[in-house]
Design a protein around this nucleic acid. Structure first.
Lengths: 194, 194
DNA sequence: TATATTCTTTACTGTATAGTACAAAAAGTT
DNA sequence: AACTTTTTGTACTATACAGTAAAGAATATA
């Protein structure tokens, strides 16, 4: 009941696959691209991921979401001013390097690419974006409770606006990857929080 | 100096190909998908489009842009209130059927899918989105001249904000394809024009 | 050290797909 | 009606790719 131990760590190879899927998208990425990036052979791959590329992609989205959500929650909980934390969340986009801009948002990419190709995968990606929206909402509600957020708009609507801004940035940052343009855009967007 | 006349119209088959590319994206669309949709054979296809799928896709983006831009300009020129025309432009999104929402924006899709796959095609799609932005800008400048637009923000920045809202809607409308949600979102966005 | 169990490598099969080449068909021109 | 030109349909080639299968390697346990 033991046998040869696994030579690779699942989380680690998923993380390596994430980079490839994020950069190239789902369809443009071949299984061999993934094997090369993960550094494992076909046998190991199909043993660990019986569903092949599709199952791996699901795991990629799932793991990415887990990491992003838990980080967001932790930072938000630690933040004295939740509204300012959201501002910082968006502002940090502008500071990222061009290579990162070119990739956009992995979930937005998935929604765009897979809506009519694989509705289930799309729903999954959409669900992760909804979690981001829910995190925005929680931050806004806390801000309202603390009297920091004074906007008369419904927090749920504000969260939706923030989500749409985020989705837009996934495209716009590729058109205008310089940090000055992005900063100006982001600062202007954040006025909905005043 | 004559010979057999062409049996199909180029614009027409490009338009049929547009639908497929728009729905499925670039990578997920095979040449055979396109041939079936266009209703022509391989011989005719490679004769008319020597560059194959890629050339066809370029023509698709180009033709779509021509149609959209010329329509926008014509309607804008006919509009008494250019700012209200922009509002109507966005509001009309919410009235479209779910099938249309699922496709998003063909240019945004191209930018998302092709940034790291085919930078030239991506640049072309990005350029078309910049034309949309330029149209927004022109409308806003006219609005400012006419005293309708009172916002203190730089019209160029406003146009950028509108573009980003548009890009975001290309994703968000697939997550929330019901017209009520979209209407609420769009109305809230349009307050930047007040 | 023998054994059982699991992982890994490699070779193989089958399929899908892009692109080419050539023959047949269609219609204008003389 | 013959001829020329161009389009169209089809057959073919080559390749890339996904997925399978089986042999061999590695290690914990007895």
């Amino acid at each position: 009941m033991s046998g040869r131990p696994k030579i690779f760590d699942n989380e680690e190879v998923i993380s390596k696959a994430t980079e490839v899927f994020w950069r190239q998208g789902y369809e443009a990425t071949s299984t061999e691209d993934l094997l090369a990036a993960m550094g494992i052979g076909k046998g190991s791959f199909y043993l660990a991921f019986k569903g092949g590329k599709k199952e791996l992609y699901e795991k990629v989205l799932e793991q990415f979401d887990q990491a992003a959500v838990s980080r967001f929650r932790k930072e938000l909980d630690a933040a004295a001013d939740p509204v300012e934390y959201i501002r910082e969340f968006f502002r940090s986009i502008a500071r990222q390097p061009k290579k990162v801009h070119q990739k956009g948002c992995i979930f937005g990419n998935a929604v765009a690419e897979l809506s009519n190709i694989d509705p289930l995968l799309m729903k999954q990606a959409a669900h992760h974006l909804q979690e981001l929206e829910a995190n925005f909402l929680e931050a806004l509600q806390r801000g309202k409770q603390q009297g920091i957020l004074t906007s008369k708009l419904d927090p749920a609507l504000l969260a939706r606006l923030l989500l749409n801004n985020w989705n837009g940035l996934g495209i716009t940052r590729r058109m205008y990857p310089d940090s000055e343009s992005l900063s100006a855009l982001i600062e202007a967007q954040l006025h909905i929080l005043d």
